[in-house]
Design a binder for these strands. Structure first.
Ligand code: FES
Ligand code: FES
Lengths: 143, 143
DNA sequence: ACTTTACCAGACTTGTTAGTCTTAAATTAG
DNA sequence: CTAATTTAAGACTAACAAGTCTGGTAAAGT
């Protein structure tokens, strides 16, 4: 199912991109998010709580409450989210699963994967979620 | 823990590379493989059985029995193994987990990931396991 | 034939991730 | 103040992947 990131992480990325479209300080409820993004309600709730605890989101209770980004959208990258949910192990583990990934005793694809891993990292950090969200054409992100 | 492929798949790749070093027709026992590669015995047994059923390996019972490649080492690529164990979903799923991955409604990294995915595919098919195994310097693959 | 060695098949257990449910606490509107 | 709404917290269940165990079958050597 998932390619690299856990399901939790995928949901987190989708939700944060959604929040990045809102005006600064505008709150979005879990209900709206699950409705738009088709993510199980309570599961998403836990994910967002976790992101809030780490400061990536801020939350407010009560009517008119909800979640918003914890910092400006142009200071957040996809990597920040991945790091918070899945961690960075995928950046230094061997893609073939060998015990250690280093130039010492490289696996057959170590060099090649090293290049890909850098590009992957770049993909996650070279643009911020503000830019990304604005250019997004997916219908579930409109209005 | 694992980057892209399941643990089963990682073990399979490691084991097949080991078998690729052996002379044509020479049999290797699960015991030797688990000893060298530090893979749980019964778990590896199941994985190799599955590969044998799919024709990627051939097996022989009894003393002097074991597993060997089911076809010449220079006709097998890492992709063949991945395909047999994990399938090819990682080649067409959205890396951010969006429901469908296509140019129609691309996610923010669709184009970028498309390129990476092609390179990843190339990494898995451009060389055969015979070449790879011969160039391998990892100590556990020596004699 | 008998014994040993090794794969075969499938049930079983364990651990992790995904997903659900319930109760409490905070905030807003009337 | 009260009722409605929404997040917070944590226990709980379900599904899946990882790993183990047992009894069976085929081949080799004596
Ligand atoms: S050793 Fe395999 S990717 Fe580095
Ligand atoms: S839509 Fe995300 S990778 Fe294609």
């Amino acid at each position: 199912m998932s390619v690299i990131f856990s399901r939790q992480c995928e949901y987190a990325l989708q939700a944060v991109l959604y929040l990045a479209l809102k005006q600064n300080g505008e709150m979005t409820s879990i209900r709206e998010l699950t409705k738009k993004l088709k993510i199980p309600y309570h599961f998403l709730a836990k994910i967002l709580q976790s992101l809030a605890q780490k400061g990536l989101l801020s939350s407010l209770k009560g009517p008119t409450g909800g979640f918003s980004l914890g910092m400006p959208a142009d200071e957040i990258t996809l990597f920040h989210i991945v790091e918070a949910i899945d961690g960075v192990a995928f950046m230094h583990n061997c893609v073939l699963g060998f015990p250690d990934c280093s130039g010492e005793n490289p696996c057959p694809v170590h060099e090649r994967w090293g290049g890909l891993r850098e590009e992957l990292y770049s993909m996650l950090v070279s643009r911020n979620i503000g830019q990304m969200a604005r250019e997004l054409t997916k219908p579930e992100y409109k209005t």
